[in-house]
């Protein structure tokens, strides 16, 4: 049992696991940053760090060149595992600036965990820099896992704080949110089928209040006890799939898509790219490599 647990732990501290995780982080992070830069026109409602410093020069024509160059160089250093303290710090700071500036335009992508996981990696590398015996191979991932767990727990606390224990009893009123989200899809695309689909789902939410209550209770408990996922590696993967199922369920029922909050969760809890690569290698060695060998 102990040996199996150690194997599991070793797998998650190997270089291929880390490389796949980094690739996934960059693959998620870069498009979000590019979308946010393109949508930000000014800083009319400053929030966060934008309250303290004006980043408007970075969004001028020349400033944007610097911003894109900084994104590119930081990502290259990060992927090549060069000067990691600086690379992760740079990614973290850029992420904070771009997301805060975007929020200062009145948009909310709920992308706090996206910056925070980069900050967690910087933290792990910074500790390792000052204290070389620190297990950076483990904690550059594990700190990120803890950030994601904390984010879900915070979401549950927000629900309990705003509505109390009766949050899951509001299944009927949930139907309004369903209609709102499907109307967004209609307003974006012009396809009235979204409205019809939303009306159907909203009606079934009203008709099956008890089932909705059970599902909402399950979702709330899953979020509230998310810290259980950081204690054990196997539990983390199981938790990852349970949360993914929750997000897919929300997507299907509410039409709001698998949001930004879930993407770093999938990467840090499951790391699917690593397992896809493993599977690819197995298939290659079993079928293709045998054919190539004379």
């Amino acid at each position: 049992m102990k040996e199996q647990s150690a194997n599991n732990r070793d797998k998650q501290t190997t270089e291929p696991y880390w490389v796949c995780l980094k690739l996934s982080v960059v693959f998620i992070w870069i498009p979000v940053m590019l979308i946010m830069i393109s949508q930000s026109v000014a800083c009319p409602y400053p929030v966060g760090i934008c309250k303290l410093i004006s980043f408007s020069p970075l969004y001028s024509a020349v400033g944007k060149i610097f911003l894109y160059a900084a994104l590119l160089v930081s990502c290259i250093f990060y992927l090549l595992e060069k000067r990691m303290v600086l690379a992760t710090l740079s990614l973290f700071v850029l992420s904070c600036i771009i997301i805060s500036y975007h929020e200062s335009n009145g948009f909310f992508f709920r992308a706090a965990s996206l910056s925070a996981v980069l900050g967690a990696q910087f933290f792990a590398y910074a500790i390792h820099y000052f204290k070389p015996q620190f297990d950076v191979n483990k904690f550059r991932i594990h700190f990120g896992v803890q950030i994601i767990a904390a984010s879900y727990t915070l979401a549950a606390i927000a629900k309990l704080k705003a509505t109390g224990m009766g949050w899951a009893d509001e299944g009927g009123l949930f139907s309004i949110q369903v209609m709102k989200n499907y109307s967004y899809l209609y307003y974006d695309t012009g396809s009235s089928s979204f409205l019809e689909h939303g009306t159907e789902i909203a009606r079934s939410f009203i008709e099956h209040k008890e089932l909705v209550k059970i599902l909402l209770t399950g979702a709330l408990l899953l979020e509230l006890f998310c810290f259980a996922a950081v204690i054990n590696n196997k539990l983390r993967v199981v938790y990852g799939f349970a949360l993914l199922a929750m997000h897919i369920g929300i997507d299907m029922a509410m039409g709001i898509g698998v949001g930004i909050i879930s993407k770093p969760m999938v990467v840090f809890f499951i790391n699917p790219v690593y397992y896809i690569c493993l599977l690819g290698r197995k298939i290659y060695s079993k079928f293709l490599a045998a054919r190539v060998t004379p």
């Binding site: 706090a112 925070a116 900050g119 984010s151 927000a158 629900k159 704080k161 009123l173 949930f174």
Partner: peptide, 12 residues
């Protein structure tokens, strides 16, 4: 940012 209370669908 990067701190947030994540108040998504916290009340209906």
């Amino acid at each position: 940012h990067p701190f947030s209370l994540l108040p998504m669908y916290d009340s209906f």
